[in-house]
């Protein structure tokens, strides 16, 4: 099944639930009408939250840049001895 179909099915199921709620009026109608708005808003909030959390916890590795510089020096020395032209970048 294509992925978009899966997502559509999920959305349809949610819509069906919503229509069911509208029909049976378990909740007051005015509340039920607003549920899709809440849904969209909370989805947006979830996204923003995930991006925010991801940004705050973004793993960085400044020490790796230093280690790499050491590796570069080591490699250049080795290669130069063996006649590989590593003079210019």
């Amino acid at each position: 099944m294509k992925h978009i179909v899966k997502i559509m099915t999920l959305l349809m199921a949610i819509s069906a639930l919503w229509i069911g709620l509208l029909q049976t009026s378990i909740l007051p109608r005015s509340y039920t009408w607003l549920l899709p708005v809440y849904f969209v808003v909370s989805l947006g909030c979830y996204g923003l939250l995930m991006v925010g959390v991801g940004l705050m916890q973004f793993p960085t590795c400044p020490q790796e840049a230093l280690l790499l510089q050491q590796d570069v020096v080591e490699a250049k020395e080795y290669l130069k001895q063996r006649g590989v032209d590593v003079g210019s970048s």
Partner: peptide
């Protein structure tokens, strides 16, 4: 894991892209 040498904009785009893909593509 980790990244070095990215500015805030680059990190923001990367996180945004990742959240979008995780949410829609599983």
């Amino acid at each position: 894991g980790g990244v070095h040498g990215w500015n805030l904009m680059r990190k923001l785009t990367s996180r945004g892209a990742n959240v979008l893909a995780q949410t829609f593509l599983w």
